[in-house]
Design a protein around this nucleic acid. Structure first.
Lengths: 228, 228
DNA sequence: CCAAAAGTGTTACCAATACACCCATGA
DNA sequence: TCATGGGTGTATTGGTAACACTTTTGG
């Protein structure tokens, strides 16, 4: 390898958020600098020389949207020769989950704006970021079949119906209420809270639960079989 | 991002091969240049400025071992700040499968030597290549549960027992012969050849099959459920 | 005819599915 | 007391898992 290599490395993050009203959303930022100035894009940027990928992502999420995240997973690396007009730029993409209600979005130094955007209403995006989001969605939808999902997305206390609606959103189809409850309970992952859902719009107030975090992490490792 | 970025990008490949006598092996090359000179390592190297990751891998496999491969899949990107003594070097790792009997290994320009090494007899490896191989093994072992495996690893014509032994090797445990046959046949993936295994060491000669490639690719897409 | 590996069918069990009625609350 | 959503049990079914004998060949 005698010829100098001119390749730059960015990290980009697909951060999914879920709220009962909004459904599944992705965190987007509006670019403030060329290329693709003023277009919506994934949060991310060039990784520093002495910084790990994950640290780079966390820094960018903080700088560009005021979001902090502790669960991040590598998604894929995108290296098409022409994917960036500035020259050869490789993107190491990560994905993660957060509960949007834990943050007040704040576009800071590097971004013009930041928003949660429903995954079925994505705008035209910069670079190949649309492709990256689609891949992350596939990954997430596969993931819920063998790992528990919900802890990162829901409030501390939630009803089984809320968890079920999250799964229905992700699976894109209805699930049987009774079978869902049986399944979830069979994992011993929920701790009942001595508390009921306040002010239901109508009907009987739901029992609230929290995740047994120890058990949740166990199940992440040992895997679940979730098929309804 | 005002400070110049000094990060270089390599591609590395974990190429698995399988033979009935040797079992699962990984393709390794002996390094000819520092760092880690004369240590065993994964085939790979710096990606060229105008070359895709896959093309880079294929070029390096050809240069370093005389192996060509058509099935390659991205594994993970390794970016620890200290993983390479030359400075910050990111490795985009791929993995793939080949039938070793299709190639005569030939260390060419960039490597001192090349070999197939049983996965349970790995030598001390350069960089973090041991970690990369372990991750590839996990991926491969997970993969066989939801995609068919074998076409890339076995000879054109093979017996069901050979395919079964491949699965037993990958799963690391014995599999019931009858249930395995039922399962495999239920996928309609095998085409019987009007030919029996010649010169069996002992016992009744086995019926030979080939893969129905069209069906094989279909199953790769639609997925299988393989759990025995 | 003996040894070795290939080929084949049935039963038991568990887990996923489908399905309907009662309960608690607010208005 | 009515409307709304929450909570629960059972019967059926389909697929996985366990299991043993017969067949074909070479020596």
């Amino acid at each position: 390898m005698l010829i100098a290599q001119h390749i730059r490395v960015t990290v980009d993050a697909v951060v999914f958020g879920y709220t009962p009203k909004q459904g599944m959303s992705v965190l987007l930022i509006k670019r403030k600098i060329p290329p693709h100035i003023f277009k919506w894009a994934l949060p991310g940027g060039f990784v520093h020389n002495d910084e790990s990928f994950e640290d780079g992502i966390k820094r960018e999420l903080q700088e560009e949207a005021g979001v902090s995240i502790n669960y991040l997973e590598q998604l894929y690396s995108f290296g098409d020769v022409q994917r960036d007009p500035r020259g050869r730029v490789v993107s190491i993409a990560y994905w993660g989950l957060v509960n949007p209600s834990n943050f007040k979005l704040a576009a800071n130094t590097d971004a013009e704006d930041a928003m949660w955007c429903r995954i079925d209403e994505l705008p035209f995006l910069a670079f190949d970021h649309d492709k990256i989001i689609q891949m992350a969605l596939v990954r997430l939808r596969n993931k819920i079949r063998y790992e528990p999902v919900g802890f990162e997305l829901l409030d501390k206390k939630f009803s089984i119906a809320e968890l079920e609606r999250l799964y229905e959103t992700l699976l894109g189809r209805p699930v049987d209420r009774r079978n869902f409850q049986k399944k979830i309970h069979s994992f011993n992952i929920l701790i009942p809270q001595n508390e009921k859902l306040k002010h239901p719009q109508q009907g009987r107030p739901a029992q609230l639960f929290s995740f047994d975090e120890k058990r949740y992490d166990e199940l992440k490792k040992e895997g679940i079989y979730f098929e309804l």
